[in-house]
Write a protein that binds this DNA or RNA. Structure first.
Lengths: 193, 193
DNA sequence: CGCAAAATGGAACACTTATTCCAAATAAGG
DNA sequence: CCTTATTTGGAATAAGTGTTCCATTTTGCG
């Protein structure tokens, strides 16, 4: 019988996420990955294919983790304002807490690889749809529960929250000052009143 | 006397902006630039130094053009709401009109090169300060003219506008649908009422 | 006109890139 | 224990990278 794998594929994938997240696609080399993943070069190719495939798996993994985090966060929070504040403060917290200033892997990928990489667009587009949909459903539920005035167009608010989240992720890389970012969050949320 | 330059440095710089803007720093090669700028490789080096210096000049040129455009736009528009709408609709218009989906050169550079490139941070940081300051001054002037209620914190609104602009630039690359983007703009501007 | 200084074209260089290949090491089942 | 399938380490490859160099061409002025 064959020799068994010496590494946990999931762990290695998470190491790849770290690197691509911090450095982006083009400035992360395979040698770079070999050094940081702790596995052999040949194992990388037999396990993940080529660089592009590894990258796509990395961003999908990041997406999955993020989507789960957001879903459980909203599920446990009945107050719409608090729930949405938590979502936006994820961006604020990570901007200030992450010494590396990596920002958001999906945002970085969007701006780095669109429009020149056709394989990336469907991934980030699906990400946008899913997140906006989650926020929309959450808002609608809150509106039906009477937490939000019926005349407010929650579809528009969902788009706005997503756009604000993306903006915070960019601005947070330039100047990760929590106070200013948090005031921006509060200003957006005040639209629900 | 020496032979005169066969090219207009400004024109060449604008071609470099196009390329770096569309492809980013790392995936634009010197060969790529030689092919598109229409000048000799050696001329590129004697005129601009190396790749990094050329890139920095390109983004500074982009900034200058944008800052001037924004300044003249605000100068000619006495109505604060209309002025700010114009600023944000720059992002909407370019997202939908640009078939290349290049987004914003400064936003792309921020997410691609921060935190790994120390020379870029001061540039994009200064860009943020200048734009926020312009918007703040414009808002303050409108508030003093009675167009905005005195209890509104225009400092916060200025940050919010900048963050929204950045967000629109990212989202516009994913899905350049003018109607949705424009509704987001209107939602943000409604905070002035 | 001819000199001088700059621009030009293209070869050359040293290095890095992604990827492939292969011999050696390894581990589980018969 | 030995076979066998797989992993592993590292060399090898071919193409691309940024940059330098140099012989040639070109231009404006004395």
């Amino acid at each position: 019988m064959p020799r068994t794998k010496q590494f946990d594929e999931q762990v290695v994938l998470e190491r790849a996420v770290e690197l691509f997240w911090k450095q982006g696609y083009h400035s992360t080399s395979m040698q770079n990955l070999v050094d940081h993943l702790g596995i052999n070069r040949a194992s990388m190719y037999t396990t993940f294919g080529d660089k592009k495939q590894l990258f796509l798996r990395a961003i999908q993994h990041y997406r999955k983790v993020n989507a789960q985090g957001m879903a459980s966060l909203l599920k446990d929070e009945p107050d719409v304002r608090i729930g949405l504040r938590r979502i936006l403060e994820l961006a604020v917290t990570e901007a200030t807490a992450d010494a590396d200033r990596k920002g958001c892997f999906v945002v970085n990928t969007t701006t780095e690889l669109i429009p020149n990489d056709p394989e990336v667009l469907p991934i980030v587009a699906e990400n946008k749809e899913q997140i906006e949909q989650s926020i929309y459903n959450y808002l609608l539920q809150g509106q039906q529960a009477g937490q939000i005035a019926p005349e407010i167009d929650v579809q528009v608010i969902a788009s706005l929250i997503f756009t604000t989240y993306n903006g915070l992720r960019v601005v947070g890389k330039i100047d990760p000052e929590s106070a200013t970012l948090r005031r921006t969050v509060e200003a957006v949320l005040s639209l629900l009143d």
